[in-house]
Design a protein around this nucleic acid. Structure first.
Length: 481
DNA sequence: ATGTTC
């Protein structure tokens, strides 16, 4: 039975697969999409994966997915799965291999004109300063003891070492430090992979991008976020590198091996999970938090590298780079939500989804309390990125979550086959966008054609009311692995 | 995403 044909329209931007479409579903599947987006989804396993997620132990309200959905490991990317605390399932597949993959936005005091005709040079300068590529190590030498401090204390460690300024801390989700971290549950192998990778971007869809603000949708919120028309900004997209990947791999094995003892069965072993309050569940949660802290530290050290390069490149000008905000895209958190009028503590898995807490939410930092948290959504290489604000409506509908990017519509392999790198680079250069990448595959796999239309994705979440448009960014210089 | 088949 074709699942796509069974989607029931709830509104122009919200569709549902009722529980009766598949035996074992405990909750419906909730899909945020427009007609246009719907045409591009369901060609992969994502809808089937969503019905599987709807069978997880303790799954609450709905198996939710955003318009940037595509197939992932067990769970689709672009999804949210909230399970009941304390004994609902926690699943590494619901967070993903790149724990706390996320994005951070820096706002400069310089204008687009300050970079005209120098975009290529800046791309080179940043490429020289920020290590990138698969398996690539960096320039920060950590002792094993220091790595444990990074894992335990996240950006607090970076602040003490001079990689952060005090103003940065409040502008990071969870202040860049999950306090449930415990490095003793991160394997020695994972630590070995992470010890020399702090301050590196990696490969795949990870990047550093210099953009300028070309459109403001909400003047008041943009002003609060420190965003002005025509100003240059910097986006940093990366995660926990080899360390987080290893934590995910390690615990996926643990979950498969111990699931049975808790009487849990799932329709796909990639959804392997254990009760959150079991020993294995707690150990994973603590290791995941350690990897998340590593990722925040990684984006912080990259910020430091970029600030140094920026100062050197724009010598004589105002070279301050203010952190606007830093959001996690792949993470699980224990949060309070209201479900059917009842206040509940839930384990919220976000996999390729951004927290979108609205005005007044207690976890939103003071300086953004009136506006809601900044939500930063990168597009694909060469296309626009967006800054949005969290909404109260997201709390009611999507566990305070929204989309995280454009979302793939083509596999990496298919993209490699269909993209001519030379022509793509020429086309981008014609639009004054300079790409500096370490590998050819890094460019072709991330070509705009391999992704959905970011403008359409943004329109869906904006119209659905689960995030609010604030500003649009246009790329000028990109560095990739 | 990932020392891309530890």
């Amino acid at each position: 039975m074709n699942l796509k044909n069974q989607l029931v329209k709830k509104s122009d931007y919200l569709w549902e697969l009722p529980t009766h479409v598949k035996k074992g579903m405990k909750v419906p599947v909730q899909v945020y999409a427009s007609k246009k987006i719907l045409e591009e989804i369901g060609g992969d396993k994502s809808l089937e994966q969503l019905t599987n997620v709807a069978m997880l132990p303790g799954i609450t309200k709905a198996s939710i997915v955003m318009p940037d959905v595509h197939e992932g490991y067990g769970f689709p990317i672009g999804g949210i799965a909230a399970t009941s605390w304390p004994d609902g399932g926690i699943s590494p597949g619901g967070i993903g291999y790149d724990i706390n993959c996320g994005v951070r936005l820096l706002a400069s005091h310089l204008k687009r004109e300050d970079l005209l005709r120098r975009g290529e040079d800046l791309a080179k300068a940043l490429y020289a300063q920020v290590p990138s590529g698969v398996g690539k190590g960096g320039n920060i030498l950590l002792s094993e003891k220091e790595l444990d401090e990074v894992l335990r204390r996240g950006v607090q460690w970076a602040l003490e070492k001079g990689y952060a300024v005090p103003e940065d801390i409040a502008k990071i989700e969870s202040q860049g430090q999950l306090d449930n971290s415990d490095p003793q549950f991160v394997s020695e192998y994972a630590k070995r992979r992470g010890i020399d990778q702090l301050g590196t971007i990696g490969s795949g869809n990870h990047f550093v991008e210099v953009s300028y603000i070309d459109e403001i949708y909400d003047e008041e919120i943009a002003a609060t976020f420190g965003l002005k028309l025509g100003r240059l900004t910097v986006l940093i997209h990366t995660g926990s590198r080899g360390l987080g990947h290893q934590v995910a791999s390690d615990y996926m094995k643990v979950m498969v091996a111990s699931m049975g003892k808790y009487g849990i069965s799932v329709p796909d072993r990639e959804l392997a999970c254990v009760p959150f309050n079991s020993q294995e569940g707690q150990e994973y949660f603590k290791a995941m938090a350690a990897a998340a802290n590593y990722a925040w530290c990684n984006r912080q050290v990259i910020t430091w590298e970029i600030r140094n390069a920026w100062e050197e490149f724009f010598k004589g000008k105002n070279t301050q780079l203010d952190l606007v905000y830093d959001v996690a895209h792949n993470i699980a958190k224990v949060e309070d939500h209201v479900v059917n009028g009842e206040k509940k503590k839930l384990i919220v898995h976000r996999k390729g989804s951004t927290r979108s807490f609205g005005p007044g939410h207690p976890e939103v930092t003071d300086c953004y309390k009136q506006t809601g948290q900044p939500v930063i959504i990168p597009g694909s290489m060469g296309t626009a990125s967006y800054v949005m604000a969290g909404t109260a409506h997201a709390m009611e509908e999507s566990f305070g979550s929204t989309c995280h990017g454009a979302g793939r519509r083509m596999s990496r392999r298919a993209a490699q086959r269909s993209v001519n790198i030379h022509e793509l680079e020429k086309e981008l250069a014609g639009r004054n966008i300079f790409v500096r990448a370490g590998s050819r595959s890094g460019v072709s796999e991330e070509a705009p054609i391999a992704y959905k239309d970011i403008d359409e994705v943004i329109e869906v979440v904006h119209q659905a009311g689960i995030a609010k448009k604030v500003a649009r960014l246009r790329p000028m210089a990109v560095i990739k692995g």
